[in-house]
């Protein structure tokens, strides 16, 4: 099939960007979206033009490195997939496809479709961990964990930190990202001692980075490639209230 792409090109974070139009011919439906961009980049290189910069690494939906807004949707039209897992069979011959970077104030565009997501690392630094120094730890089976809690913690822990939730949110909020970590650690017995300080510190950092607040719109969950559920945000809010109530 033949595809027309309109791609955001921006030389660096200081320069203005704009959409450029490219034609890509003979696209196979078995190609992934990123492989289609690879093919275009090969052609651009041969023609002596600057290939389109975009992030990707594992290309199997787990590293969280890739992320494009495709036709206005974070990670494109697929459900529960990252951009690298989106295949061209989701498109039709003659389609015109818009390709843009994640757009949110804390996600500065570095070049073309590549953005800076270091704010996510700083949110984790603020409290997204359990303090467990390397050394002789308690025997793994000494603390049984209710299977339902363990499974729910795992579901929350599958967040890949890609930033699609932020890109999809009209408020530019990273609440789903943060709530997933708060739930993962807060559901486990090991995470209880720091449960209150964790959530408050993470929320403070989130706000300091310039992410917006959550107004329960739900675009984040719809865009999340791992299907992280929005009720985790309510759970986080309850943790915040409880933490404030217990603040000493």
């Amino acid at each position: 099939m033949n595809i027309t792409l309109r791609v955001w090109r921006q030389p660096d974070s200081d320069a203005p960007g704009k959409m450029h139009t490219y034609q890509v011919a003979d696209v196979s439906e078995d190609m992934s979206f990123l492989e289609m961009l690879d093919v275009l980049n090969e052609q651009l290189t041969i023609d002596g033009e600057d290939p389109i910069a975009f992030d990707s690494d594992c290309r199997e939906g787990i590293c969280g490195m890739c992320g494009l807004v495709i036709n206005g949707l974070a990670h494109g039209p697929g459900k529960n997939v990252t951009t690298c897992q989106l295949h061209m069979r989701s498109f039709a011959d003659g389609d015109v496809i818009d390709v843009e970077p994640w757009r949110a104030e804390p996600f500065t565009v570095i070049k073309d479709l590549v953005v800076d997501r270091s704010s996510f690392d700083r949110i984790i630094q603020a409290g997204g961990y359990i303090t467990a120094p390397t050394g002789t730890a308690p025997e793994a089976n000494s603390i049984p964990v209710n299977k339902a809690d363990a499974d729910a913690a795992f579901d929350a822990a599958t967040c890949i930190g890609c930033g699609a939730c932020v890109a999809a949110c009209p408020n530019g909020s990273a609440s789903l990202f943060m709530a997933a970590k708060v739930a993962h650690l807060g559901l486990l017995p090991q995470g209880q001692p720091e449960r209150h300080s964790r959530v408050l510190d993470m929320v403070d950092q989130h706000d300091a980075e310039g992410f917006g607040g959550c107004t329960q719109i739900g675009e984040c969950t719809a865009a999340c490639p791992k299907g992280i559920q929005i009720d985790l945000i309510s759970r986080m809010d309850r943790d915040v209230l409880s933490a404030i109530a217990h603040r000493k």
Partner: peptide, 17 residues
């Protein structure tokens, strides 16, 4: 042991182990 202490959510059985 170390990973469980960090909160790695390994698969568990109904008894919690």
């Amino acid at each position: 042991d170390q990973c469980v202490a960090q909160g790695v959510p390994f698969a568990r059985e109904y008894g919690g182990l």
